[in-house]
Design a protein around this nucleic acid. Structure first.
Lengths: 147, 147
DNA sequence: GTGATTGCAAAGCGTTTGCACCGTA
DNA sequence: TACGGTGCAAACGCTTTGCAATCAC
């Protein structure tokens, strides 16, 4: 990812935190830095290990607490995969459908589905009232497919 | 769920186990019994508690090991939800799309989506090679929507 | 009889909580 | 200065592992 995009992401997150009366601490900044630079689903422990290269004092607990706050603000979202539901990704774009590389965890987004019709049909047939949906694709990204 | 359906499910599971050279033990039978009677996503601990009413000697570890085997045989599948990925459901029907009640965990299946076109488009645009997909709807079942 | 399966205890892992200290606003 | 935020240690809940006893075939 290019430096400009990373910088934009960091700024965006920083502003959202400030707006919501969260303090900008060294710990939070370094967690945000790691998240901003990541194109992949990343676990709290991975964030911890990477972030400590910049800020050795960081505690794993703080990573969890920062993720919790970012999740509340819908700035990150938890990623569910068949074998692992412990990772997070940057969630700037509102509701998006995910395309996940099952090898390296790289994340792409896509849209343009048209499942509203389907949802209406299923509601009618099942009697359920549908509030939310997940549409996720799993596979190999261009890099990983080469190997 | 009617008794006949439950009985059919149990028979189906029992045969699959036998075919695959798994022994039919008391522990396995009682776990299967609980699963067969459940219309909802159910956790290992819930299975354990229910099954022990029939077979007090049962250990939680055996529930886990039985689920592992049933999962290998694709007879149960793990259910992923935003807040909880610890539950399982009966998975007779091959690849199915899920409709989950977020209140009581009741599960319905639906099909008739047509996402092959979407997948082809996303593959072309992203460079990913897609192998699998999840399409899940979350909401309230008829019962829970009433309240 | 033999080897798969069981249950127990203990370890493992990811996550949360309690608490005294620290640092941002 | 005040109080939100931090890091440590310890607890927690779910899951897996090691092992001797058991039981289906």
């Amino acid at each position: 990812m290019d430096t400009e995009t990373i910088e934009k992401r960091k700024q965006f997150w920083t502003e959202r935190l400030r707006e919501n009366d969260y303090r900008l601490t060294a710990a939070r900044c370094v967690v945000i830095e790691v998240l901003a630079a990541s194109e992949c689903a990343i676990t709290p422990t991975e964030i911890y290990d990477l972030a400590r290269q910049e800020y050795e004092k960081l505690g794993l607990v703080t990573v969890y607490r920062t993720l919790e706050k970012l999740e509340d603000l819908e700035l990150v979202m938890r990623v569910h995969r068949p074998d692992n539901c412990h990772a997070f990704i940057a969630g700037f774009e509102g509701h998006q459908h995910l395309l996940l590389c099952r090898r390296c965890g790289r994340v792409a987004y896509f849209s343009g589905d048209n499942i509203d019709n389907l949802i209406q049909r299923v509601e009618k047939e099942s009697g359920y009232k549908v509030h939310d949906h997940w549409l996720q694709l799993f596979g190999l990204c261009e890099e990983c497919a080469k190997e």
